[in-house]
């Protein structure tokens, strides 16, 4: 029982990270109908930026904020400079462009920072906390806390600010949005910027666990795909729930199904993706998309 609860809590912590990347994917998917395959690598790259800032003597939280600002500029700029000109290009072209971005970020990070793994500090204390019969890891609690805080902020932004309302309007009906004077293209760039920030936070949270290296997001990305697929690409809330579910699923299958262990962890995610697409392609909370014929 104690292992079970411990596994669930640590699953929630990694789940928070998956939820964040999944949310980033969904933010972009909803506004542009595009899956950003470079989302994980962008998060990795911004985490390296934070590492550079820390190395330059910044404190943890200033570096955190700095990395988020950098991420915003990166996402915003990419949308304006790289994605925007291909607005009317077909899906395949955009998939290829984001794959191109994936390789560029991966290799430029390797180029600048080398492929040797680097430890990354955690802002949370290391000493375990005892709560009743449970021994909790502050790292896990911290990650869950940061993730939930970020999700709450995003929810507030979308539901109680004018800009958030405008962004929801663009997702819902871009043509009508133009007709009320919303500058739709800027909203899309803003969406990319926000998605990059959400990803950056996930990167900063995961780096202490997996160490910093250019390929650190590969496993996270596949789980984020699974989370978004499970929750539904058309539902931000669904993607978040999907993320937590995947985090717990990963830990439980790893602990209790010996066939899987930790060695087939990525295959579990692949299986989830394939199964969800087969059984309920819109995911648990998604709406069926209107298909163009």
């Amino acid at each position: 029982m104690q292992t079970f609860v411990a596994q669930v809590i640590s699953g929630l912590s990694t789940g928070g990270i998956y939820a964040s990347i999944a949310l980033a994917l969904v933010l972009i998917y909803q506004s542009t109908g595009l899956v950003n395959f470079a989302q994980g690598e962008m998060a990795m790259f911004t985490t390296y930026m934070a590492w550079s800032m820390l190395n330059a003597g910044w404190g943890y939280w200033p570096a955190f904020v700095g990395a988020c600002l950098f991420a915003f500029a990166l996402g915003f700029g990419l949308e304006r400079l790289v994605i925007r000109p291909l607005e009317t290009a077909p899906e395949l072209a955009l998939v290829i462009v984001t794959i191109g971005l994936l390789t560029i970020f991966n290799s430029v990070a390797g180029w600048i920072y080398t492929y040797t793994i680097k430890p990354f500090p955690s802002p949370f204390p290391a000493a375990p906390i005892k709560v009743g019969f449970m021994v909790l890891n502050p790292q896990d609690l911290g990650v869950v806390g940061v993730t939930l805080l970020m999700l709450a902020l995003i929810y507030l932004f979308f539901h109680s600010t004018r800009l958030g309302l405008a962004m929801r309007a663009v997702v819902e009906n871009p043509v009508s949005s133009r007709l009320v004077g919303i500058r739709v293209s800027w909203m899309l760039a803003l969406g990319w910027g926000m998605a990059a920030v959400v990803g950056a936070v996930a990167g900063l949270m995961v780096a202490p666990l997996v160490f910093l290296e250019p390929n650190m997001m590969g496993g996270v990305l596949i789980y984020a795909f699974a989370s978004a697929t499970l929750g539904g690409f058309s539902s931000a809330g669904g993607a978040v729930v999907g993320g937590f579910v995947m985090g717990i699923l990963e830990n439980l299958t790893g602990t209790y199904i010996t066939l899987v262990g930790t060695k087939l962890k990525l295959t579990v995610a692949l299986a989830v993706i394939v199964l969800v697409l087969l059984i309920k392609p819109t995911g648990l909370f998604g709406r069926a998309a209107v298909r163009r014929v």
């Binding site: 790289v82 290829i96 462009v97 794959i99 191109g100 971005l101 994936l102 390789t103 560029i104 991966n106 290799s107 430029v108 390797g110 180029w111």
Partner: peptide, 9 residues
């Protein structure tokens, strides 16, 4: 890889 990515885009 960087060159490959740039080529793709």
């Amino acid at each position: 890889w960087a060159i490959l990515g740039v080529f793709l885009i």
